[in-house]
């Protein structure tokens, strides 16, 4: 091995010098290395050049920012973001906590009384939500998982749906009035739970954004929920109790829009 190569290897394999050049050292260690470099001209020259070469390469890389916008790349970005979003939702549903629930497809049959189940779902979301909120979140994200539903209605069957839901809940239930906000109902489902029926309405606006509303009888041994808006993953959600019914609205909309949607449902 030549002397040159030996020196090259010694400097190149010095982890402290690497970390110094890349700014990965804590301040006290930085000062220590700088003191060392004051006495080691070869190491000082080497680190200065490494940093300079890095700067040149980075400067060249940043000229990419001035390249013309590429429409094909922009379209692929959107497609990738949508795919990753779907992946995220599936992971949420099938993750370690919710996977226990989804695996048995008993999300809704576990229902309102399954405090442990929905308690876990709520904790995973990082907040203390009522049980019905977790059920709605899952219902919103798992529109296809309807194996435990009692009935499903198409848009042209909404009158029959409201009659059926009202009969099951033993009180008059009005459909959420989101049509006036530009949403069209896609389906309504009535789910059987241990604690009673849970109605879920799926809506979509002109841009394809989906909003889900749930209605269920409020448990008499629980205090009413005041209107609350919360952020969950990429969706915003509002929930409240009104006249003996628990409501929740969830969708990929901003907090102002979710409040407007909640107001339309309450109206």
């Amino acid at each position: 091995m030549t002397q040159d190569t030996k020196a090259e290897q010694d400097l190149g394999l010095d982890a402290d010098l690497m970390a110094y050049v890349d700014g990965h050292l804590p301040p006290e260690k930085m000062a220590e290395i700088e003191a060392r470099l004051a006495h080691e001209p070869e190491a000082r020259a080497a680190t200065a050049r490494w940093r300079h070469h890095d700067n040149l390469i980075r400067q060249m890389a940043q000229t990419a920012d001035d390249l013309p916008a590429n429409m094909r790349i922009a379209a692929l970005e959107r497609e990738l973001a949508a795919k990753l979003q779907a992946r995220k939702r599936r992971a949420l549903l099938m993750g370690p906590t919710l996977g226990r629930i989804a695996a048995s497809v008993l999300i809704f049959t576990a229902g309102w009384g399954a405090h442990g189940y929905f308690g876990s779902a709520s904790q995973m979301a990082g907040a203390e939500y009522p049980q019905f909120v977790s059920a709605t979140v899952i219902g919103h994200q798992a529109i296809q998982q309807a194996s435990v539903q009692q009935a499903e209605f198409q848009p042209d069957e909404m009158d029959a749906a409201m009659d059926w839901i009202s009969a099951q809940m033993q009180r008059k239930i009005d459909s959420p009035k989101l049509e006036r906000l530009g949403y069209a109902v896609e389906s309504a489902r009535l789910l059987a739970t241990d604690s009673g029926p849970l109605a879920i309405f799926h809506y979509r606006d002109g841009e394809g954004k989906r909003v889900t509303v749930s209605i269920a009888p409020h448990s008499p041994d629980q205090a009413d929920y005041k209107l609350r808006v919360v952020r969950l993953e990429n969706d915003n959600m509002a929930y409240w109790t009104d006249a003996g019914l628990d409501y929740s609205v969830i969708g990929d909309v901003n907090p102002g829009q979710i409040t407007t949607l909640a107001a339309a449902v309450r109206d």
Partner: peptide, 13 residues
Amino acid sequence: MSRLGRGREALRR
């Protein structure tokens, strides 16, 4: 780290 260090030093030289 070894490749980075050796590479940087080789580049400099």
